[in-house]
Simulated assay, not measured.
Amino acid sequence: MTFKSILTGGLLASLVATTAQAASVASKADVDGVRDAAFAAVESMGMEAAMAHMGDPSNGMLDLAGAGLHTFAVTRNHIIVFDHSGQTDSGMDLSEFLMPDGRPITTWLVDWAEAGPNGGGGVMDFPHPGTSEPGEAYFTCRFLTDGDTLLCAGAWNMTG
């Protein structure tokens, strides 16, 4: 079952979107580094060019077959800006997709982004974007300078 079908069917048990390069992503710190590199790309190139950059696996921010590494962006109002995992579509509203504690997934992401000056992250069970198999994933987010858009990275089976 794909994440998109889970969202469309309203059966969300846990949500995670991720981005990272298999060869260089072994830890949560590595995924945090991908998040920060994605942030720098948006700040220096603008959103459109950065989205293309992050979506090119040769740039080290996308590995769906391996670690499930990917980047995505969502607004405080629960609207997907982009998602390189293919699990959601741009413009999709996540407000109805609740986590086990009853809060929308975006609320979790906002909490993590507000954890420190450069954001923060957390672990949840979520379908891997390459295999659709559920597994433990680490997601890390920070706000773009507009203060409304969260830029996130995620990957599966991370250590420390």
Rank of each mutant, 00 (worst) to 15 (best):
T2E: 13
T2L: 13
T2G: 12
K4S: 12
K4N: 12
I6H: 07
G10L: 06
S14W: 01
A22K: 04
A22W: 07
S24P: 02
S24Y: 06
A26V: 08
K28A: 13
D30Y: 01
D30R: 01
D30C: 03
V34L: 00
R35H: 00
F39N: 13
F39V: 15
A40L: 13
V42W: 08
S44C: 08
M51K: 14
M51V: 15
A52R: 12
D56R: 00
P57G: 03
S58C: 11
G60E: 06
A65S: 14
G66A: 04
G68P: 01
L69D: 07
L69T: 11
T71A: 07
R76A: 11
N77S: 15
H78N: 15
H78S: 15
H78W: 09
I80D: 08
F82S: 04
D83M: 03
H84A: 07
G86W: 02
D89T: 11
G91K: 02
L94W: 10
L94H: 05
L98H: 07
M99F: 00
M99I: 00
G102W: 00
R103Y: 04
T107G: 04
V110N: 01
W112F: 09
A113T: 05
A113D: 08
G116F: 00
P127Q: 12
P129M: 03
G130R: 03
S132T: 14
E133N: 12
P134C: 05
A137I: 06
T140Y: 05
C141G: 13
C141K: 07
C141L: 14
C141A: 15
L144Q: 09
T145I: 11
D148I: 14
T149I: 08
T149W: 08
L150G: 10
A153K: 04
G154Y: 04
